[in-house]
Design a binder for these strands. Structure first.
Length: 465
DNA sequence: TCAGGATGTGATTGGCCGAT
DNA sequence: ATCGGCCAATCACATCCTGA
């Protein structure tokens, strides 16, 4: 039935118990049409749509089986073992089914999750109506509103840390200050630099993890009282400017000169192996294009801004002595660590900070993740900018500078609405952060007055010997 | 043997668009 | 011009698998 449609590899099909597709024809038809019309990415069709729709289908079939079993005076199990799952298609779903499904799922998952799930389902039924598969949409609606899920919306709130809590989390959690050597991260300066970078720039987890080495200049390349600016493409392909202060550059330099050199050297054989397998993207060299970092590929300079995250994770260049040098700033076994690494690092850091206790332990209701640092950056910057505005209210130039718009640009939000989510938190926090703007990065940095950190220097001196 | 990949799924973010 | 709902995109994390 579907042989003539030219299906892509890995296209998902829902099949009945017996392996046929007769019972879920419309469901499969919907998935095919959605793919053909490029309604969603194939990845998302597999990841969400087929998944949610199939779960609803199972639920509806079970409901029907339950009814039929009662009519026959049998238990559900007995009836199912004889008759199997009823071959009901999704188009047979009733309003009662949806309400029952909602009530069942509500006990199992968060509201936001179910809300997201329902949007997948409602998309199917709207299409089914358009195509004439069903005459009325089983989703209860009032005007344009989907009343199945309305009236229960949760208020979103930003989860952020104070400057002291952030500094403590970076030092004690990510770098492992105060923990014994065995339980410290293997590359503690790398992990610290990563956390500091997120907290001081508001980069997202992945944006920070796949930064390139030449996108952050050495400390010497940063103006004394100023900041270094470069562009980074983020979520939804939206580009924004990232501001790097001297404090951040200093922490990154320390990591570069110690752990990064050692890691790259130690994993040359692994990199060579990757290269043999053709898994690397070998560029000819580094350069700059109109002031922005760039790579040379096939004789052409290409701004790093245009590189995809996949390319960033596997890009290397060959040095004159034959060594393979990854382009990524943060490296593990020669290449940037997988995302799971950063998740685990934060998980370990939470445990460490929890065990240490102390006045700067993050509040219990906040689970610190890379995104928490982004929230923290946003709220701190908002509060700082608003405070600054109050002090200098007479300055006519400042009338042009709206703090919310400024932070919107810094975070790379496409719309101001997203930034407003943070506004409430910033207003209530304003009094507690008098010097937030001026001292943001400075307040986050721990030991750089006497770096390199003695323990790090010691470790790597030993290793060289 | 173990880091890292693959897979599964719950939770959150934020672009977009229509109603007001 | 603004606001809130819709819902795709992304984050987060657990578990199982695999190849060097």
């Amino acid at each position: 039935m579907f042989d003539d449609r030219g299906l892509p590899d890995g296209f998902p099909f829902v099949v009945d118990d017996d392996g046929g597709v007769s019972g879920c024809r419309y469901l499969n038809q919907y998935l095919l049409d959605a793919n053909e019309q490029r309604a969603f990415d194939l990845v998302n069709i597999r990841r969400f749509h087929v998944y949610h729709l199939a779960r609803l289908l199972r639920f509806v079939r079970r409901q029907r089986a339950q009814c039929l079993a009662e009519l026959a005076g049998q238990s559900l199990e007995d009836w199912m073992s004889v008759n199997g799952e009823p071959r009901i298609d999704l188009t047979q779903t009733t309003r009662q089914d949806l309400i029952g499904y909602r009530d069942g799922r509500q006990g199992a998952v968060e509201f936001t999750t179910l809300d997201t799930e329902m949007s997948c389902l409602s998309s199917f039924f709207r299409y089914a109506v358009t195509m004439g598969w069903i005459s009325t949409n089983p989703f209860p609606r009032w005007g344009n509103r989907n009343t199945l899920m309305s009236g229960k919306r949760k208020v979103r709130q930003a989860r952020f840390l104070t400057a002291d809590q952030t500094a403590h989390f970076l030092a004690a959690g990510l770098r492992g200050d105060g923990s014994d050597t065995a339980s410290r991260p293997a590359a503690s300066e790398r992990d610290y630099a990563y956390g500091l970078l997120l907290a001081a720039t508001g980069l997202r987890r992945e944006e920070g993890a796949l930064l390139l080495d030449n996108e952050i200049p050495p400390l010497a390349g940063i103006p004394h009282d100023g900041v270094h600016v470069f562009d980074r493409t983020g979520k939804m392909g939206f580009t924004r400017s990232i501001y790097v202060t001297a404090e951040v550059a200093k922490a990154i330099d320390l990591y570069r000169q110690t752990e990064r050199i050692a890691l790259v050297r130690r994993h040359q054989s692994s990199l060579r192996n990757h290269r043999r397998q053709g898994r690397l993207l070998v560029v000819d060299g580094l350069t700059r294009l109109r002031g922005q970092p760039a790579v040379i590929m096939n004789g052409h300079a290409r701004p790093t801004l245009a590189m995809t995250d996949e390319d960033r994770a596997r890009a290397v260049r060959i040095l004159e002595d034959g060594c393979i040098e990854p382009l990524g700033l943060f490296v593990a076994r020669g290449l940037p660590p997988v995302l799971a690494y950063w998740n685990e690092l934060f998980s370990d850091a939470r445990d460490r900070v929890f065990e240490l206790g102390g006045p700067n332990r993050p509040p219990a209701h906040i689970s610190v993740t890379p995104h928490t640092l982004r929230h923290t950056f946003a709220v701190t910057m908002l509060a700082g900018l608003m405070q600054e505005g109050q002090h200098r209210a007479g300055d006519p130039y400042l009338l042009l500078a709206n703090p919310v718009l400024t932070v919107k640009e810094l975070l790379g939000h496409h719309s101001i609405a997203a930034t407003y989510h943070y506004l409430y938190a910033a207003e209530t926090w304003q009094g507690e952060v008098p010097r937030a703007l001026r001292s943001l990065a400075a307040g986050l940095v721990g030991h750089t007055t006497q770096d390199p950190h003695p323990s790090v220097q010691h470790r790597y001196v030993e290793e060289e010997a």
